[in-house]
Design a protein around this nucleic acid. Structure first.
Length: 271
DNA sequence: AGGTCGACCTGGCAGC
DNA sequence: TGCTGCCAGGTCGACC
């Protein structure tokens, strides 16, 4: 999915264009992206309700509705929320929301991994309950990180990507954060030294904040609410750069597989 | 409990 | 051109 910076960008775009709008109709083209109810029930619950707030938790978008329900959207790898003045579905549109201002919000998803769910209580979504703290929130500080790393034997990269450890970091930013931290992704989390933890903490915040400022990274599918690619690609140091030169030492960037996912790093700079 | 692996899906692309 | 195999930004359940 889009990771934290991409979902934050989507959230901000939704806040501009969706906040205060009512859903006048919902057209479901593929109900496999809807969880917990049928397409008919999904559309019925949305009809006439107004969007009162839009929040992000990890990689999930939480839309508060005037009927005291929440629409939770997890775009996963390939979901997109795109505004349009056209009702006609786009290439991979699975759901179209017609808004009270006459515009349309299309939910597109190539791989159908994304999920949209309407709940009365966010506790109905276990993923949100078990999720770790926001890395750009107040809980995420060096002492907390040091304490949580202590007992873990997993490679640090795999742990950074675990949403129950810390929210919002996925495969791209895990590699990027470790490059900036100069920590080898294969290191066991529990063996990271205090001064490295300080760097890791700083890099996590810096990388994510700059990516948010640049409206995220588009490798393949990610698009913001206007259908535009993110601007952080120019700042990517290692992800997707196998065999290219490290910007710091000119050595080759390596690609390895950890927990079934590609990791990119420089074995000279990252110890 | 912590850790790893495969399943869930489709489409784009490299290689032949 | 057309086929095959591989790859993809996440989450979850089964298993060791």
């Amino acid at each position: 999915m889009p990771e934290l910076p991409e979902v934050e960008t989507i959230k901000r775009d939704l806040t501009k264009s969706l906040l205060g709008q009512a859903v006048s109709a919902t057209i479901v083209y593929d109900q496999r992206v809807i969880r917990g109810c049928t397409a008919e029930a999904f559309a019925a619950q949305l009809k006439g309700s107004t969007v009162e707030a839009i929040d992000r938790r990890g990689k999930a978008i939480v839309i508060s509705l005037s009927n005291r329900k929440y629409l939770v959207v997890q775009v996963m790898m390939t979901g997109q929320l795109i505004f349009s003045s056209e009702q006609a579905p786009m290439a991979m549109t699975k759901i179209t929301f017609r808004l009270s201002n006459g515009k349309y919000l299309h939910y597109n998803d190539q791989r159908l991994f994304g999920r949209l769910q309407i709940v009365h209580d966010l506790a109905e979504i276990p993923h949100l309950q078990t999720m770790g703290p926001e890395p750009l929130g107040p809980e995420f500080e060096t002492a907390w990180l040091a304490d949580r790393l202590k007992k873990r034997s997993m490679p640090i990269k795999t742990l950074l990507m675990n949403p129950q450890f810390v929210a919002g970091i996925g495969n791209i930013y895990a590699s990027e954060i470790l490059f900036v931290s100069r920590i080898n992704p294969r290191r066991k989390a529990g063996k990271i030294k205090p001064e490295e933890i300080k760097r890791l903490h700083r890099a996590t915040i810096d990388v994510l904040q700059e990516a948010v400022r640049r409206r995220g990274t588009s490798m393949r599918n990610y698009r913001d609410g206007n259908g535009q690619k993110g601007g952080f690609m120019k700042r990517i140091k290692v992800y997707g750069r196998e065999n290219e030169q490290c910007y710091r030492c000119d050595g080759p960037i390596l690609k390895i597989v950890q927990a079934g996912r590609s990791t990119f790093f420089c074995k000279t700079c990252q110890r």
